[in-house]
Nucleic acid binder design. Structure first.
Length: 466
RNA sequence: GACCCCAUCGUCUAGUGGUCAAGGACCCCGCCCUCUCAAGGCGGUAACAGGGGUUCAAAUCCCCUUGGGGUCGCCA
């Protein structure tokens, strides 16, 4: 049984790096028929917001990664943390430090100028005297002074830290009594019975600190997996300028959540030559020990390609449902399935798909100038007029192939080639030289509207010529 | 600055000492298909950071260099 967790601090939106570690955690727990838990790390009351926490939960809801049990908010658990701090104090494993922030800053500054690592010097570690008045103390843990802390990371392998150049008696409770990150992480991971901690490798050097807590409390240390970061195209740390970071931005841009997840799972992990994975396949094949040790760069083109693959495969009904987010409702369109199927192979995003559908469903209000100039010349208008007549004589066409058969016969009679009719007709239908097969377009637009749109183009030319 | 992590095509990756004159995918280019645009099919360009070892044999193991990244908070 593997229990994992995702533990964001609610200072902003859920970003894709976080989503990826959450996905890995999710997959690993599900593969081992365990739980995936969500914990909101809001111990710093000053900078956390309820809105941000809600935003994170909304983003999760969109991706479909559901956490087991209700999320745990650390801000509601201060009593628990206090009891552990008291215990450490009672057991003489932690102590009060009366150094002020100013003094600390000074100490660090002088250490820096001496080119040595900034660290607390332990001056109150064995302090016996009268504490200075007017200073609310912080609580510091008695960390080991020498030796080595090491652990077997599931991704990086054996990692060793020398206590001397790594640790100091770090703060576990602020002067206002609230506990700090490295302390509560260890407590909660233990209390939540987390067996496997999968997180970004920016936490790698926090791990020894957390191990100090585990050991002081006699708690079993979980298995750690430190996942490399995601970089941008230039191999630098991913930032807002590199495009969307907020998971919900991807929704707005027209990405399918399963495509985003598929993209993310392949960033740093692979299974043979497979590129497309359903969630079930991810669960089946995923193992964090297969995650690459090196950082990987974000590649939007690949994401687009994956998204396109999913759009091609998705059911029309689901696609129609997703399109509503882009203010497009074609649920009652008589040819909705044909419409979707003729466009799905052309769209890389839902946003694009919506745009393409609108271009067909709505009568053109204008004609693309270049296309018009290029194709509406010579006998084009006469041919359109004649084709319109042929349509009127033939009466209603009910399928793309019926339109096509009619057109073929028309062209044969007139001694024309398909090219002579297709482009002008396309411009009449959608206003530009780009669309799916004209016959599919005609079918979707429908017999009466086809005739109306041809008429509209015929009139337009008239006005233009004046 | 100290400590830690990392290093295969532009990018995502396969590769765990011989089957690698390095495979797949995205991108790009060419051809085919074709009523336009896509999609699809076929083909192409392109990489083991550098230097030392170990070994009969190294992309794979070791060391150094270089380059990148992370951490050093009363943030998480």
């Amino acid at each position: 049984m593997v229990i994992t967790r995702f533990a964001p601090s609610p200072t902003g939106y859920l970003h894709i790096g976080g989503l990826r570690t959450a996905l890995y955690s999710y997959l690993w727990s599900k593969k081992n028929s365990g739980d995936f838990l969500l914990r909101i790390e809001d111990t710093d009351l000053k900078r956390n917001s309820k809105e941000a926490a809600d935003a994170i939960e909304n983003a999760f809801a969109w991706t479909g990664l559901s956490h087991d049990e209700k999320p745990i908010y650390q801000s509601t658990r201060f009593d628990i943390y206090k009891s552990y701090i008291k215990r450490l104090l009672d057991e003489d494993k932690a102590y009060k430090c009366y150094m002020s922030k100013e003094e600390l800053d000074e100490l660090r500054e002088s250490q820096r100028s001496q080119k040595i690592r900034p660290h607390y010097d332990g001056r109150y570690r064995d302090f016996e005297g009268e504490p200075p008045s007017g200073v609310e103390p912080v609580i510091r843990i008695k960390a080991p002074i020498e030796g080595e802390i090491s652990f077997d990371d599931g991704i990086k392998g054996e990692v060793h830290f020398n206590v001397k150049d790594m640790l100091d008696d770090f703060i576990i409770a602020r002067s206002d009594g609230t506990p700090t990150y490295n302390f509560v992480v260890a407590i909660d991971d233990a209390l939540m019975k987390i067996t496997d901690v999968i997180r970004g490798d920016d936490h790698l050097s926090n791990t020894p600190k957390q191990i100090v807590i585990y050991e002081a409390l006699g708690i079993k240390i979980p298995k750690f997996y430190h996942v490399p970061m995601i970089l941008n195209n230039q191999g630098k740390k991913l930032s807002k300028r590199d495009g969307a970071l907020d998971v919900m931005e991807y929704k707005k841009e027209g990405y399918l959540p399963e495509a985003l997840l598929n993209f993310l799972v392949r960033l740093g992990w692979s299974h043979k030559d497979q590129e497309i994975f359903s969630i079930d396949e991810m669960i089946e094949f995923f193992n964090p020990s297969d995650i690459n040790k090196s950082a990987s760069a974000y590649n939007e083109e690949k994401l687009l390609w994956i998204n396109a693959q999913y759009i091609k495969k998705l059911s029309s009904s689901r696609l129609i449902e997703e399109l509503r987010f882009f203010d497009l409702d074609i649920k009652n369109h008589p040819k909705k399935d044909e419409l979707i199927d003729s466009l799905r192979e052309r769209a890389k995003t839902l946003k694009e798909l919506a745009k393409m559908i609108r271009a067909i469903v709505n009568e053109p209000i204008d004609y693309d100038e270049k296309a018009y100039k290029k194709f509406i010349k010579g006998d084009a208008l006469e041919n359109l007029e004649a084709f319109k007549q042929a349509l009127l004589v033939h009466k209603e066409c009910k399928s793309a192939s019926e339109f096509e058969a009619l057109a073929k016969k028309f062209l044969e009679d007139k001694g024309l080639k398909l090219k002579d009719l297709a482009q002008p007709l396309r411009i009449a239908m959608v206003g530009s030289a780009v669309s799916p097969s004209v016959f599919e377009v005609l079918n979707v637009i429908g017999y009466n509207n086809v005739i109306a749109r041809i008429g509209k183009l015929l009139n337009y030319k008239g006005k233009n010529d004046e």
